[in-house]
Amino acid sequence: MFFFFLDLLALGCINAILVLGLNLEYGYAGILNFTYYTFAAIGAYVTAVTTMGKPPPYLGNESYILQWTLPWPVGLLLGGVAAMILGLIMVFVAVRRLRSDYLAIVSISVGLIVWEIVTNDVHLFNGSNGVFGVPPITGSLPISEAGYTAVIFAVSFACLAFFWWVARRIFRSPFGRVLRAVREDEILAASYGKSVFGAQLWIVLIGSFMAGVAGGLLIDYVSAFNPAGFLPVETFVLLAALIIGGSGNFNGSIIGAFLIIELLLEVSRFVPDFGRPDLVGAVRAILIGVVLIVVLRYRPGGLMPESGIRLYRKKKGEAKQPEPAKEAP
């Protein structure tokens, strides 16, 4: 039982980093990235191939690039950097018109392409079988399973604390105000001399980095990852957690991550299934979709709405809560 809770905490911290990163893009800047989890996947793969060295022969035929044996913190960083590069590509593709629908289309396309290439190209990350046998970050130390979970929990918690601090700093900084201005009205923000593109680029880079690190932590914990692990539905779960927790609120993201992902996904794994293995997942996904739409309709601010100084109020009857927006001084 104790191990079960420890496991929930460790995975909860990793998920919270992901939701926090998505919050930077969607909540702060209004950038609709429909394939955020792909960034975590890239981080996971790159962390794996830069730390695990040559594939151990007893694990069967595994082929992947690089095969470096770097220390795990470097692997995590490289995972984050790789995700940033993907983010850079995505933003530059949509550069001319970073309108939310164009960017959403480009993001979905990027997700499908990455998925297709990773699945088809066996040399890259071992194709559809994925990479496995990633060594634990504790190296050859004799450590129990629960002990290792505790180590991962500690590292993830430290990362989460750091990213939470970053998110909080950004929210309160002039940069955060520019982001909110861009989210509310790009033309207005630009007319105040703020670089709309620059703001969006930077926040996608930071958000991607967080996704990459979270993906790296995940693969260091579970030691394997394959294309079945980053289907489009994963991003949707994060998005649901973010919106239910409170989009734009750095505390709400963490609440949402623990509440939604833990409650709905982890705990419900212990509910008996109804005979068909595919049914549980499908019903769960439908439930998430319904809850998300209901929340967006009746409580668009989520559990913890974004707070801030209100300089102007939108017209009555707006779907979104009155948005705080403040021009940079």
Binding site: V290, L292, K320
Partner: peptide
């Protein structure tokens, strides 16, 4: 009069 970004999330839902 929901925002465009909200509508897109709803259609994905």
């Amino acid at each position: 009069k929901a925002r465009l970004i909200t509508l897109l999330v709803v259609t994905l839902g």
